Simulated assay, not measured.
Amino acid sequence: MYFEIQGNIEDIEPIAIGNRIQELSRLKKQFGSGRWRKLKGVANVKLDNGHIRRAEVHWCEAHGIGKRKMKIKRFID
């Protein structure tokens, strides 16, 4: 499913940091080493069919690398 974040991500919370991330080795192979964190937040997302919905999104990020592997976990509205 393709989507775009509309506006800012709110209520950002860490889920896991460093070795607590299950996919850490894959992230390091694909994007490089860094201080990886898995985060979640709430945002308005524009879906590929044009609808805008409120959703909980999860992603991984590292300093100097940025947000990667963003996905919609569930719709809130």
Rank of each mutant, 00 (worst) to 15 (best):
M1Y: 11
M1C: 08
M1K: 14
M1V: 09
F3W: 03
I5F: 09
I5E: 00
I5R: 02
Q6P: 06
Q6N: 10
Q6C: 11
G7N: 10
G7S: 04
N8G: 02
I9D: 03
I9V: 05
E10Y: 04
D11T: 00
D11R: 10
D11V: 00
I12N: 08
I12S: 07
E13Q: 05
E13L: 01
P14A: 08
P14D: 11
P14Y: 07
P14I: 14
I15E: 04
A16W: 05
I17K: 02
I17T: 14
G18R: 06
G18K: 06
N19E: 12
N19A: 10
N19P: 14
R20I: 08
R20W: 14
I21S: 13
I21L: 12
I21K: 02
Q22N: 07
E23D: 08
E23F: 05
E23K: 09
L24H: 11
S25A: 13
S25P: 00
S25L: 12
R26D: 12
R26G: 03
R26I: 07
L27N: 02
K28H: 03
K29R: 10
K29L: 13
Q30K: 10
Q30E: 12
F31S: 03
G32E: 11
S33N: 15
G34F: 08
G34T: 11
R35S: 14
R35I: 13
R35M: 12
W36D: 06
W36H: 07
R37A: 12
R37V: 11
K38Y: 01
L39C: 03
K40L: 05
K40S: 00
K40A: 00
G41Q: 01
G41W: 06
G41R: 11
V42F: 02
V42R: 15
V42H: 08
V42D: 10
A43K: 04
A43P: 10
A43C: 15
A43I: 04
N44P: 09
N44H: 13
K46Q: 14
K46W: 06
K46P: 08
K46L: 11
L47M: 15
L47T: 04
L47D: 15
D48V: 10
N49Q: 15
N49W: 05
N49E: 15
N49I: 05
N49K: 13
G50C: 14
G50K: 13
I52Y: 00
R53W: 13
R53T: 00
R54S: 10
R54W: 13
R54T: 15
R54D: 02
R54N: 08
R54K: 13
A55K: 13
A55T: 07
E56C: 12
E56G: 09
E56W: 03
E56S: 08
V57G: 04
H58C: 00
W59A: 02
C60N: 10
E61V: 04
E61L: 05
A62C: 06
A62T: 07
H63M: 11
H63L: 12
H63P: 04
H63Y: 08
H63V: 07
G64W: 09
G64I: 05
I65K: 09
I65P: 07
I65F: 05
G66D: 01
K67Q: 03
K67W: 07
K67A: 00
K67R: 14
K67Y: 03
K67C: 01
R68T: 09
R68S: 01
R68W: 06
K69N: 09
K69T: 03
K69D: 05
M70V: 13
K71P: 04
I72A: 14
I72R: 04
I72M: 10
I72D: 13
K73F: 04
R74M: 11
I76D: 06
